[in-house]
Structure formats: C-alpha cells, structure tokens
Write a protein that binds this DNA or RNA. Structure first.
Length: 477
DNA sequence: ATGTGC
C-alpha cells in the first residue's frame, strides 16, 4: 500500500484523507508502518467502499492483519445503526459464517506429550474428519438439524458432547438467539446434515500448542495459563451451511439494494437495510449458522477429549474460550458519550470486550475477554486480552490471525506440500493433512508475520498480549 | 471459506 495515501495518526493507526466532494464516513487502518506498506492496495479500496454504505457509525476500520476479501476486506470492522438506515451485508460477515477458534487449556506440560506426539497426531487425524466435503459420524435428520440451528453448543452438550459448565466460556453461552431455521434454504440444511463435527479445509486446523512466553502474568493467571503448558486450538466454522447461506443471500440482498436504490460502490457489497424483510431474513439465517459453528466446535472439542482419554487418560481439557471472527452482532456501544445499539460487522476480526464487560464470565471480568490470534501452520499463535481502549477505537475488536500476505495461487507456485511438511517436521512441528495442495496454500511464508500482527494489535490499543503459543502438531483439512 | 472452477 502506498503510505502517501494515508495520514498517520499514531504509531499504529492511520486515516484516509477525504478528497473534496467525496461523501463517506472516515476510514481508519490499524497496523504498523511495515504491515501497512506490504498490505494490498485493494484493502484500502475495499474499506473506503464500505465507508460509503448507509447508516455507518463512526469509522470503517481494518485490523493489522487485514487482506483483500469478497467485498469487505478480511480484517474489516464496520458498525451500522438500524434506526439510521444502517445495512447488513453478507460480504461483511464472510462466507464462513461464525468461523472462529475454540481454545482448550490442558493440565499437561510439553514433557507429558512429547513422547506421545506422533501417536496423538495420528489419532487426532483419524478422529477428526477434515477436508473438503468430508462428513462426520453424525447423520442428522431434518428435525435434528433444525434443533442445532437454534440450540448451538447447548444442543451439543445436551447430546453428550462436552460439559454444561464450560458453556460459560463460549461466546453467547454457546447459543445465539435470533436464529430462524425457516430463513435457511433446504439446500443449506441438506449440506450440513452430515457435516457436524468436521473441521473443513483451507486455513482451518486443530493444533496442539505449547505456551512459550507469558507477556502479562496477571491475565495469564486469570486465564489459567503458564509457561510450558499444552493448549489445543480448534479453528473452524459453519461448513457447507454457512457457505450456502452466503451464496443464497448474496442474491437476495443484491435485489433488495436495487429495489431500495442503495448505491453499491462494488457489487460484492450487496446489502439491505437491517430494518427490511431481506435484512431480517439474512440475520435470522446468519444466526442459525452461528449456532452450527458453535455446535461444531463443541463436538470437535469432545472428539479431541476422546482421543486424549485413550492416550493420556490423566489429561483434562478445559475450555479457555471460544470466540468467532466472522459475524455481525447486535451490541451496545458508546458513541460520543451516548449508548447506542449497533450491528457490528466483524469479518476476520475478533470481538474483544475489555475488563468489566457484563457479557464476560466472572473469571475474566478483571483481565478482559480472551482474544485468540491464530497463526499459520508453523509460526505460532497468541492469546490476548480485550482492553477498555478498544471500545473507543474499534467497537471492541481486534485481529483474528496472521492474515494472508499472498494469494493461494501464488503460494502454490512457490511451495510444495510434501517438502514443506518435511521441513516443519525437522523443526518439531508435525503436520497431518488430507491435501498436499492445501498444505502448500497454507505455507507459513504465505502469511504475515504473526509476531508483528500481535505487537501491532497491542500497540494500536485493540488488545493486550498475554501469551505466545508454539505449535507442536497440526491437523489440517 | 466452499459437494473449490472458465
């Protein structure tokens, strides 16, 4: 990105100056100079388009890990007021609705798992269905799937997957309200009936990690983290159902925009007013997809526990937190000293509530919400904590991952899956995957430097670093 | 991301 097009506000925030006659809301890009310099110009173009949409409140923003996406950039945050013609956009949520990370903390340290790492990786790879179109053991009837659409992770717990007391550490207590199965197409439902409890493909993974560094001792204590401890992160979303809802509603929202004369700077920004039939239908369907993702991660956590029970029966796997990074949620926010109810799109951006927020479990009320920045296969992840400052800066949002630095096509030209996996193994990171092509697309080199993203996230005041996690074994789709 | 796609 040409930094001359930006005005630097402070070390990690930049604005886009308004040209004369240009009608749009302000745009803020968060990130270090080097992250922004290597960011695609398309990010700037896309977030500037978002700032032209009706009913936008405050600024349209990008997180430090932003990259080019469908319509909205990935790493984009935009809040809309339903009372001021604010819109909802499927491209502002993402196709993988409610994609997110469930992070489990264990009572094991690296030395406990090190002798069993190969065995654990193999067993997890057998137990966790991964890959495009892969189906799981569960085959749901249409009525059962409808129950998942409204019940989320609570449905999963009621059916023997995990424990009721861990739902406190899952966003929305594991169940998103406002889900309307009737707004989800039959095609979308049919696709999902065999896909519960599956990981999917692309950047989705299940990873065994070790806490390598603690940045904030007090928050780490509240989160139950210590150096050398084994954690497990599960990154996945709403599979075929979410994708099908995205596809279905792109058309319906585009029609609504046309009918209501909403000017779209880019066709991919298809949207409808929140207070319109199409907007409400999309929201009902999207919330149903959120429940599918929450149930999916709940089931996968259970399958992971079953594997550990067999190999290391003394292991206990507790939920640290489960948080999504592809959503649009109705939340209360302070705007110019006044409380307002806004629909916050976070696409490739994590909700990051600060200390004291009423939605947080008592255990995290002091430290703030755990925020998980998932890395690429070889480079590690971060646990951060939400800050009070993030509320003013970004409607309580933070980065979600390392963020791609290169397209999948480019990555395929540069790396070979087999070679990459051998190289990572020599560094002590085991990869188990269905697809060598997928592995090449996910090469660590195709991503931004996760250390830089986490540092910039903290410097921008969006969240505070708590722990760095080093990967040991990774199951990929 | 995706029963990956001109």
């Amino acid at each position: 990105m040409d930094l001359n097009r930006l005005k630097q506000i402070d070390a990690c925030s930049w604005s886009v100056p308004l040209h004369s006659g240009e009608k749009r809301a302000p745009v803020i890009l968060y990130g270090s100079q080097s992250l922004l310099a290597s960011m695609d110009d398309k990010v700037l173009e896309q977030i500037t388009n978002v700032a032209c949409l009706p009913g936008l409140v405050g600024s349209a923003m990008t997180m430090p890990d932003a990259h080019w996406g469908y319509g909205f950039p990935i790493g984009g945050v935009a809040a809309f007021d339903p009372e001021q013609g604010g819109i909802i956009s499927a491209g502002g949520v993402g196709f993988d609705i409610s994609c997110g990370i469930r992070c489990l903390r264990t009572n094991l340290d690296l030395q406990h798992i090190a002798p069993h790492l190969e065995k654990l990786a193999d067993a997890l790879f057998r137990a966790i269905p991964a890959g495009v179109g892969e189906e799981g053991k569960l085959k749901l009837t249409p009525a059962q799937l409808n129950d998942v659409l409204t019940g989320g992770a609570q449905w999963a717990v009621q059916h023997g997957y995990g424990h009721a007391d861990e739902l406190e550490f899952v966003e929305e207590h594991g169940r998103m309200t406002g889900a309307v199965p009737g707004y989800v197409s039959e095609v979308a439902k049919k696709r999902q009936r065999g896909e519960m409890g599956t990981l999917g493909s692309g950047n989705h993974y299940l990873e065994l990690q070790v806490v390598e560094k603690i940045f904030d001792a007090a928050a780490a204590r509240d989160f139950g983290l210590h150096q050398g401890q084994v954690l497990i992160s599960i990154h996945c979303g709403s599979r075929g159902l979410g994708h099908q809802i995205g596809t279905d509603y792109l058309l319906s929202l585009a029609k609504a925009a046309g009918r209501l004369g909403i000017h779209l700077p880019d066709r991919e920004l298809a949207c409808a007013p929140i207070n319109s039939p199409e907007g409400q239908e999309y929201i009902g369907a999207m919330n149903a997809a959120v429940n599918v993702a929450l149930a999916n991660r709940q089931i996968l956590a259970h399958l992971t526990r079953e594997v550990f029970d067999k190999i290391l029966p003394q292991a206990s796997l507790e939920t640290l937190f489960d948080v999504s990074h592809n959503t649009c949620k109705l939340e209360k926010h302070q705007v110019d000293g006044k409380e307002r109810l806004l629909y916050v799109h976070r696409k490739g951006a994590t909700r990051a509530f600060g200390p004291g927020h009423p939605a947080l479990p008592a255990r995290y009320r002091t430290a703030g919400q755990p925020v998980i920045i998932g890395g690429s296969m070889g480079t590690g992840s971060y646990v951060l904590a939400g800050t009070l400052e993030s509320e003013n800066r970004a409607f309580s949002s933070a980065s979600h991952g390392a963020g791609r630095a290169m397209s999948r096509t480019q990555a395929l030209k540069r790396w070979q899956g087999k070679e990459l996996i051998r190289e990572l193994a020599s560094k002590g990171i085991l990869i188990r995957t269905q697809s060598m092509r997928g592995a090449a697309e996910e090469a660590p080199g195709a991503y931004k430097d996760v250390d830089e993203v986490a540092a910039a996230t903290e410097q921008a005041g969006l969240a505070k670093r708590v722990a760095f996690l080093r990967p040991k074994a990774c199951i990929k789709g």
